[in-house]
Design a protein around this nucleic acid. Sequence first.
DNA 1: CTGAAAGCGCTAACAA
DNA 2: TTGTTAGCGCTTTCAG
Lengths: 344, 344
Amino acid sequence: MDPSRTKPATIADVAARAGVSVPTVSRVLTGAAKVSPAKREAVEAAIAALGFRPSAAARVLASRKAQVIAVIAGDTSQYGYAETIRGIEEAARAGDYTVMITVVESTDDDEIDRAIAATLSQPLAGVCVLKFDPPGVAALHRIPPSLPVVALSGVREPGLRQAVLDESRAAEELTDHLLDLGHATVHHVRVPPSRREDGRTTGWRRALKRRGAVVPPLSDASWDPRSGIEIGRRLADDPTVTAVFCGNDEIAMGVIRGIVASGRRVPDDISVAGFDDHPLASLWTPPLTTVDQDFAGLGRRGLQLLLNEIAGETGRRFSSERPQLVVRESTAPPPADAAVRRIV
Amino acid sequence: MDPSRTKPATIADVAARAGVSVPTVSRVLTGAAKVSPAKREAVEAAIAALGFRPSAAARVLASRKAQVIAVIAGDTSQYGYAETIRGIEEAARAGDYTVMITVVESTDDDEIDRAIAATLSQPLAGVCVLKFDPPGVAALHRIPPSLPVVALSGVREPGLRQAVLDESRAAEELTDHLLDLGHATVHHVRVPPSRREDGRTTGWRRALKRRGAVVPPLSDASWDPRSGIEIGRRLADDPTVTAVFCGNDEIAMGVIRGIVASGRRVPDDISVAGFDDHPLASLWTPPLTTVDQDFAGLGRRGLQLLLNEIAGETGRRFSSERPQLVVRESTAPPPADAAVRRIV
DNA sequence: CTGAAAGCGCTAACAA
DNA sequence: TTGTTAGCGCTTTCAG
């Protein structure tokens, strides 16, 4: 009587109630083989009446086919990660897959193995690795080669099935925008890089070199927006700094805060640009010039690639998209005296 | 030779290689029964040599015990949700559980069932429902009663195993703070409520009534920070408005933007407070007065409660924590003329 | 189209 | 302590 004590119906219960054999029930469940309309209806009625839900565990065991996608990420609450995961989940749900999340916080192999052990012992259809930071990159190498894998990141790499957001091209375009405004060079604040050099930094450097501008030393920020404040202060103290490109919008907000605290204005004295087009970027004072990254789309594309591989398709192993430059009010031409100084 | 074609080792392979029976391998795996050191070592060596990883599906099927926790949420990329999920995942990983995420976007029973069907067919140890919005609330009722469930939310409700962040107390305190500053009353901008009335709104109303202040009409915002802009404009147009309490920090940022665009100052003309202590709240101009919510802690506490229930403990069914008021610079006494108008 | 028989990889009694 | 014997709930041959 107590529903909480009723144990779930099995396929045998359904078969009995519908007056058919167990394999017939299985056939209507999987839709694999033809079943006469009469029996099919009887089975469906029994399923509904019993509230039967097939056990995924038994199913996986018998069919050797899983319906779970594991997502491995270095972080889940950062804007970009959270959005990417949202896109993955959305696409997975549409394809009747379920998403499992595992966070890896370290780059140490043993720690990674420990973190992903519970997940890898699950029956997995495939794995999505968010390769935006060192832990994500390290985790990629610990996935058994027998599992279909797709990497999502900001830089193309050979030999990998991956969906990317072409950050270096976008960063190059953003740097060009600043240079076009008349700045002699552009400083860069880097967020924790995924490799020796991430796409944003690469694009920035490439634009500077192509235009013959000096490549100033990098500043390194953490993921915490407040880490930008001190960097902003330091940059503001250097009178030759007129343009700063930050690795993400949140750091840009911190940097602006630090610059303003030092008594210099944005963009009048110093232009500051971010990256990502965070939901608050347009609300910031001043509204941020940035690059719109479609993270949710990246997640969807990545999952699609993975599903293709799972289906055994030999087609595309790669999907790239170019983020869009969004010019707002935090970037402007350098102040007149800076321009003069440059010419001299 | 090709590792990608090697099929995974089974427990039988391990047993054969170690020269023991299958159940003995199982015993060292589960640690349930005593095994002689010699055999244990042989088994462990075989496991390592073969890179054996037990199949969770088979394990679940045989033992009827799952190691997966499903998290059902209405959103995953919002700051509060993302942080809560991070806390859940962290605690789950520590307890060797794995976390599965499912998003429900609708409040329609059929759609919810469709969304969670794939997840519920998995062998689940328990379910965490993030009950902060209407889809989350609706989803709670669609979980089979046979499954251990814990609800995470901002308001206590009887009959539920739940971890809460006592929002109404905190909202009351925040409203009191504004009233203490000398404001005649406080306006409220609500984010999509989880019930007829959410904790933030309840606390606000309670404080106002207790202090004998007028309860002004509510404004409703969406989750998009930009929806606050228009509301800010409208509020700024009403000269009697001197204090606004927004349902979250992001909306507060939008509201401030709208107020400033209308030519009024924050906090000089109008005080604005948020809720959540978003990572950018302290960087905003002006830095936001808000309430610090420990979402990650909420997630950890909730998961702990769920683990207790799974372990069959009859102990605490409830865990509550009081968010902390954080006073920064977006709130101040009302302008002198407003005070006069109030006395008259 | 349908049913009978045989597992999937593991754990849980039960003897030994 | 250890091995033997039975399944867990489902899918997959294979006959019919």
